[in-house]
């Protein structure tokens, strides 16, 4: 609420824009907005197109006679497959849910001391985390494969889930956000005799709820679309995204079912973001890097 109010008051006080400027602004954002949204709208439309519309020439963008046959086709196709579709769904949901929950708890626990205590090594540790934002996980992929094979985690969920607990971006955002918590609150509970663990769990965790949602979206980005990478070989452990790839490989005969899966895959993260947007923006306002 406070953010929204600030925005309104700011616009009133700022320099005025000409009507031409306003027009340009609207057309610019409209044009690029359409570009961003078209593929998404297309996916939604395609999922409800009957086959004859999917293969219409010249192709038409919007659906004329919406139908649910694609979903029915998908259900049929999947009922007959060796691994039931619900299993792929379960795998994706399980990996995303466990990975996200673990990541939020682990990184919050590590972020709290880094944000609120000065102790030997705290700056070095956080410095390493910031540096690790500067390269992508591809760099560590090969040693991680070796580690997984030593641990015996190849071909299990854990090879995907456990490394996701320790993604650096989540800890970084969590720590930056926690720095805003007033010390007086923590001090008051310390005087009341609460242990550090209790303060973390009962006071800090509830305050940083907006950051939970942010980490959730970030992990969604990483895990929801995973196909198990090099780690998962067993068919019954594979994810929905992998199943989608297989259906698309089926070519023309499977185009309808593929459109239905695509819609299912796409809508979940977007809906999550829809409900958590305000919290995420709130977390991001403390995301900056200090000199």
């Amino acid at each position: 609420m406070s953010i929204a109010k600030k925005g309104v008051s700011k616009r009133k006080k700022r320099l005025n824009r000409s009507w031409f400027g306003t027009l340009m602004l609207f057309s610019f954002i409209g044009l690029f907005g359409a570009f961003m949204a078209l593929p998404l709208i297309y996916t939604i439309n395609n999922a409800f197109k009957p086959l004859d519309e999917i293969f219409l020439f010249p192709p038409r963008f919007f659906v004329r006679n919406p139908t649910f046959t694609n979903f029915a086709d998908l259900a049929n196709l999947m009922a007959n497959s060796w691994v039931p579709f619900t299993r792929y769904m379960f795998n994706t949901v399980f990996i995303t849910a466990v990975g996200t929950a673990g990541h939020i708890i682990f990184s919050a626990a590590a972020a709290y001391p880094l944000a609120k205590h000065k102790f030997p090594g705290s700056n070095v540790l956080f410095g390493i985390v910031v540096l690790s934002l500067m390269f992508s996980p591809h760099v560590t992929a090969i040693p991680n494969y070796m580690t997984m094979s030593v641990l015996g985690w190849v071909d299990s969920y854990w090879a995907v889930i456990v490394p996701s607990f320790a993604f650096p971006l989540g800890l970084y955002l969590m720590k930056q956000f926690m720095e805003q918590i007033p010390d007086s609150i923590l001090e008051a509970s310390r005087i009341d005799g609460a242990s550090e663990y209790r303060i973390f769990w009962k006071i800090v965790m509830p305050i940083v709820k907006p950051a939970w949602l942010t980490l959730m979206i970030l992990l969604f980005q990483q895990l929801w679309g995973t196909d198990g990478g090099n780690f998962i070989y067993s068919e019954e452990l594979k994810t929905m995204h992998y199943a989608l790839g297989q259906i698309i490989q089926g070519g023309i005969a499977r185009a309808g079912a593929a459109a239905a899966v695509a819609l299912m895959l796409m809508s979940v993260p977007i809906i999550v973001f829809l409900f958590s947007q305000a919290s995420i923006i709130q977390t991001m306002s403390s995301s900056g890097m200090k000199d």
């Binding site: 682990f106 990184s107 626990a109 590590a110 709290y112 001391p113 880094l114 205590h117 102790f119 705290s122 540790l125 390493i128 985390v129 690790s132 390269f135 760099v139 560590t140 090969i142 040693p143 991680n144 580690t147 456990v162 490394p163 607990f165 320790a166 650096p168 800890l171 242990s195 550090e196 663990y197 973390f200």
Partner: peptide
């Protein structure tokens, strides 16, 4: 207590990010 709170995250972080480099 700070080190104990950080232990789970940082042991995984070192195992899967620092050590691999």
């Amino acid at each position: 207590h700070s080190y104990i709170l950080m232990a789970p995250y940082f042991s995984l972080f070192f195992l899967f990010t620092v050590l691999p480099v």
